[in-house]
Amino acid sequence: MKTTKYLLALILFFCSMDSVMSQVNSNAINDSLKTADTTISYVVVELENNKSITGKKVSDDGREIGIMTVDKGLILIPKYQIRTITVSATMPSVGGKKVFPNPHPSRYLYSPSGIPLKKGDGYIQAIYLVAYQGQYALTDHFSIGITSTLWASPFLVNVKYTNTLHKSADGKKNVYLATGIQAGSLTYIDPRTYFGIGYAGLTFGNPESNVTVNGGFLGESSIWYYNQYDPLTGRWTGDEGRENEFLPAISLSWNQR
């Protein structure tokens, strides 16, 4: 009987302690919320498990931060679970939700867009792990780069100019211009064979959702050979010359988020 009383007493004690601790934690959170800066912008917290939480940062005690979300209320996140915190005011909105910005809006998989790189920005792009392109912005309008393959043939140099022709009030219906040239050769395979493309294009939209129309000319310049055997002299005679060929090209590309 005494054992039963002791067990009941322990259960009541732990329940009361849990209630007290819950009240203390609740009071601490409420105090934190009351003293929080309500002018803080919304943030997007990217977690180590690749998930993200969007809301207003309302507390930070050094070990964890409190994010007040619209759908789930207050969420306390230990800092060791956080990868990055980004102010959502600097992030684009798609479908009413804040998203991480497109990290590579200046081109598509195969063709360029008119959206400019900012001075000092650059990228390296791999296409099927075979072809590679690198580009670096010297200014907000001019960028240079190279395009090649794993075996370094062909090898092309890229020069690109971009500009914003029109910027809409909401930032969603902008018009961008791009023009440039790529030129190079087959290097050690045939150093006297040259390739090039000159193009111009317009991009409509914004870095997150856009469509681009590009037009230009593909060019090739190569050496032709002519050999003929002369049975009277028993010798081969021949000649060579350069042949140039140009073909029109057009591309339509888009990105929708």
Rank of each mutant, 00 (worst) to 15 (best):
K5T: 05
Y6R: 14
L7S: 12
L12I: 09
S19Y: 07
V20D: 01
M21V: 08
S22H: 08
S26I: 00
I29A: 02
L33D: 09
A36W: 01
V45N: 06
N49D: 15
K51G: 02
T54W: 04
G55W: 01
K57A: 13
G62M: 00
G62H: 03
T69C: 13
D71P: 00
I85W: 05
V87H: 12
P92Q: 05
K97G: 12
K98Y: 14
N102S: 09
N102D: 06
N102H: 11
P105C: 09
P105M: 06
S106A: 11
R107I: 04
S111T: 07
L117P: 06
K119L: 05
I127D: 15
V130F: 14
V130Q: 14
Q133H: 05
G145C: 00
S148H: 06
T149A: 13
A152P: 00
S153N: 11
K160I: 04
Y161N: 15
T162K: 14
H166F: 15
S168M: 03
S168N: 09
S168H: 04
K172G: 00
Q182K: 12
T187Y: 04
N206H: 06
V211W: 10
L218N: 09
G219P: 03
S222T: 10
W224H: 09
T233L: 08
R235G: 02
G238L: 01
G241S: 10
G241L: 03
R242W: 03
E245F: 09
S251K: 05
S253F: 13
